[in-house]
Amino acid sequence: MYKGFFKRLFDLLLAIIALPLLLIIFAILGPIIYFQDRGTIFYNAPRLGKDGKVFKMYKLRSMKINVPDLRNEDGSTFNAEDDPRLTRIGKFIRKTSLDETPQLLNIIKGDMSIIGPRPDLPEHCDLYKGNEERKLEIKPGVTGYNQAYFRNTIPWKERIQNDIYYIDHLSLWLDIKIFFKTTISVLKREDVFVTEKRTSSKNNTDVGM
Rank of each mutant, 00 (worst) to 15 (best):
K3T: 03
L9E: 01
D11K: 05
L12E: 06
A15K: 02
I16H: 02
L21N: 06
I24H: 07
I25V: 15
I28D: 08
L29Y: 05
P31H: 10
I32A: 07
I33N: 04
F35H: 11
Q36A: 05
Q36H: 08
R38Y: 10
G39L: 01
Y43R: 03
N44I: 07
L48V: 09
D51T: 08
D51M: 04
K53I: 15
V54Y: 00
V54I: 11
F55N: 09
K56T: 15
K56Y: 12
M57A: 14
Y58E: 11
Y58V: 12
K59V: 12
L60R: 03
R61E: 06
S62N: 07
E73F: 13
G75I: 10
D82P: 02
R85H: 03
L86T: 08
R94I: 05
K95A: 15
S97A: 05
S97C: 11
D99T: 08
D99E: 04
E100V: 04
P102C: 06
L105A: 10
I107Q: 01
K109C: 06
S113Y: 03
L121I: 15
L121K: 14
L127H: 13
K129Q: 15
K129P: 04
K129W: 05
G130I: 08
E132Y: 11
E132R: 07
E133T: 15
R134E: 14
R134L: 10
R134I: 07
K135T: 13
I138A: 01
I138Q: 00
K139N: 11
V142A: 09
T143A: 06
N146K: 02
Q147S: 02
Y149L: 14
F150M: 12
T153G: 07
T153M: 07
T153E: 15
R159E: 02
I160A: 03
Y165C: 04
Y165S: 06
H169D: 04
L172P: 04
W173K: 12
W173M: 12
I176R: 10
K181Q: 14
S185Q: 14
L187Y: 08
F193G: 07
T199D: 05
T199E: 10
S200T: 15
K202H: 04
V207K: 09
V207C: 11
